[in-house]
Design a protein around this nucleic acid. Structure first.
Length: 590
RNA sequence: GCCAAUGUAGCUCAGCUGGUAGAGCAACGCUUUCGUAAAGCGUGGGUCGUCGGUUCAAAUCCGACCAUUGGCUCCA
């Protein structure tokens, strides 16, 4: 009930916004104005561009309209009437033509002021509703025009770009304020902010946008994640390889990437022996590793793994911190198997993925079965039979594993359907974290075969592409925001800060440091030049998991005084006990 | 790439309508040697994103470009 009402409120606000815009900028043409997750938007074609400083005035006017207790009424009209109503609205006319074609009923909502004879229509819009009956149902303090953005008409870059005004809308001001506060908290956790503060990574104009530089502290975390992946993949029977960052044009023509994915790749380099491309994916090269020797059924499934660096020519406007970059290190692997092995292999990858998520404590994820769109001939290889069979196979696996999932059309890879694991970040942005893809095209393109038990050549080699730990870049972004910078001990760039009370205790502090370092604990010694309070504050701000204070008492007892991150109480224990404790914690990846 | 906004010291920011830059933190130096989230004093550091233009004079006005942010399209 409540959500229905909010829908009507948000939708009505979008109409009032349009009404206010037409009042202020009469020559503006209207696009569409739907309800979205936390509010609404409306697309306008302004004669003269407006800027976000104009939003305050517009918001004020919308608020006045709300207070005027305006009424909304629905009217069903004929296509002919509709054309008349919207004779000066080119975008609306386009929509009407489509409704007419579909023989759908056409309705408008009128916004009126006054009653009886005084009643006057101040705005009307093509709309199927629902709306509030009267703006008195809308809390004038529960909404806010939040931002201005460009948006292509009907979402196609071939169309004109309209100006979109976004609004937030809730039932009460409190909810609105809470939402804004939540956004601010998300901003504090933003991986770009924390990455800068904690010196994890940086960018440089001379190097270029989307090309991150991993600083020492960030590299530690990245390497720990990679170590984990290598260990687990070894456990799951993967074989590790490493391959070059570029390859000849012919390779990407063979794989089909060039016709289907050319826009995503960097333009070629011309050398004396032909054109070379930076790889945007590792798969074709792994396929050639498969082919580097004759394979037998005994070799399958063959699992080839690499933390490969690939380069993608993302549009400059889409780059965002580590979430979308142009050079990326992917936790990539390709599993070559027979049709009969697909299910088991796919399940093993799902299991591994879920293991990782549990280890990192990630819970905000969902599964998406990404399907092709037969109409999109440009994007997908044209093998309808294979598409249908592969999609059905994945659907069956997901169902048999009893995991909830949604199906999404036109989200597949060009060579086959995939299961994407979508993660919702603190800021509410949804991105693909992990992906498991079924490829039925590689076998023909690359001529992948094996000798079966009868010594005959079999060409039914299926490939599973998988990247459960995403890319180092994106995964790091998620981890930073997930932990809000409070990395678990095993990932912390500095695990222990040793602080001598004064210079008299420096020798013992060194001893403590060396004992920890010998046990592969990442330890930093804070020099005694500053007050103890200040050094503790510094280590707390760095979110160091353990702070060890050593003074006369500790020297006497061969002990350390342990302060655990964000806890005021401390605990004195023998140095050996602490070493044992922390090495165990690190080993267990806690 | 497209739409809009932003860009001042390592970081966070101030600098009203044009009269050639300032704070806090950080860094460095000296004093202090301290028992659990900021000791005191001092010093250095900026061709105000870049390049042009207007002006006697530009951080401030205009243009182009670069980068970032929020969206659109795209996507791991």
């Amino acid at each position: 009930m409540k959500t229905d009402k909010m829908f009507a409120v948000r939708h009505s606000l979008s109409h009032l916004l349009a009404a206010a815009i037409l009042e202020k900028y009469p020559k503006t043409k209207l696009g569409i104005g739907p309800v979205i997750e936390n509010g609404f938007y409306y697309d306008f074609d302004f004669k003269k561009p407006i800027s976000d400083t104009d939003l305050a005035d517009i918001e004020k006017r919308v608020r006045e309209l709300v207070r005027e207790k305006l009424a909304f009424t629905k009217k069903i009209i004929t296509p002919a009437q509709a054309t008349k109503y919207f004779k000066d609205e080119p975008y609306k006319k386009e929509l009407i033509a489509e409704l007419k074609k579909k023989k759908a009923s056409i309705s408008i909502y009128e916004t009126t002021r006054g009653t009886g004879k005084e009643k006057k229509v101040i705005f009307f819009d093509l709309c199927s509703g629902p709306h509030v009956k009267n703006t008195s149902e809308i809390n004038p303090e529960g909404f806010k025009l939040s931002s201005l953005a460009g948006a292509y008409w009907r979402g196609s870059e071939k169309n004109k770009m309209l100006t979109r005004i976004y609004g937030l809308a809730f039932e009460t001001k409190r909810e609105l304020d809470e939402y804004i506060a939540m956004q601010e908290e998300a901003k504090r956790r933003d991986h770009r902010e924390i990455g800068k503060q904690r010196k994890l990574f940086t960018f440089n104009d001379l190097i270029g946008p989307g090309l991150p530089l991993w600083l020492p502290a960030g590299t530690i975390i990245k390497d720990e994640v990679e170590k984990l992946a290598k260990e687990k993949e070894e456990e799951y029977g993967y074989l590790r390889v490493s391959t070059p960052h570029l390859a000849k044009e012919e390779l990407f023509l063979t794989s089909g990437h060039l016709p289907h994915y050319a826009d995503g790749m960097f333009p070629p380099m011309k050398l004396d022996d032909g054109k070379y491309y930076l790889k945007a994916m590792n798969c074709p090269i792994h396929h050639l590793i498969y082919k580097s020797e004759p394979r037998s059924y005994r070799d399958l499934p063959l699992r080839i793994a690499e933390y490969g660096t690939v380069y993608r020519n993302e549009l400059s406007g889409t780059l965002a911190g580590l979430l979308r970059v142009r050079s990326l290190q992917m936790n990539d692997s390709h599993i070559y198997c027979t049709k009969d092995q697909i299910e088991e292999e796919f399940k093993a990858v799902m299991e591994l993925t879920l293991f990782y998520f549990k280890l990192f404590g990630l819970t905000n994820y969902s599964f998406r079965l990404s399907l092709w769109d037969p109409k999109n001939k440009e994007k997908y290889i044209n093998e309808p039979k294979n598409w249908k069979a592969a999609e059905e196979a994945l659907r069956k696996i997901l169902k048999s594993m009893n995991v909830p999932f949604v199906e999404a059309k036109n989200e597949a890879a060009f060579y086959g359907p995939k299961v994407d694991i979508q993660y919702k970040s603190v800021a509410g942005r949804e991105e693909t974290m992990s992906t498991i893809q079924l490829d039925f095209a590689a076998k023909e393109r690359f001529g992948l075969t094996y000798k079966d038990a009868n010594g005959k050549d079999n060409d039914q080699v299926f490939v599973i592409h998988r990247a459960p730990l995403s890319t180092h870049e994106r995964f790091m972004a998620f981890l930073i925001e997930h932990y809000a910078g409070n990395f678990p001990t095993w990932l912390s760039p500095i695990q222990v800060e040793v602080l001598p009370v004064s210079e008299k205790h420096a020798d013992y502090a060194h001893e403590v440091k060396n004992a920890l370092r010998k046990n592969h604990v990442r330890v930093h010694l804070g020099d005694a030049n500053e007050t103890l309070g200040k050094r503790i504050r510094g280590a707390e701000l760095e979110k160091t998991p353990y702070i060890l204070v050593v003074g006369d008492k500790e020297i006497e007892a061969k002990a350390v005084n342990v302060r655990t991150r964000h806890k005021k109480e401390t605990d004195t224990m023998p140095l050996s006990t602490f070493v044992e404790h922390i090495t165990k914690e690190i080993k267990e990846r806690k």
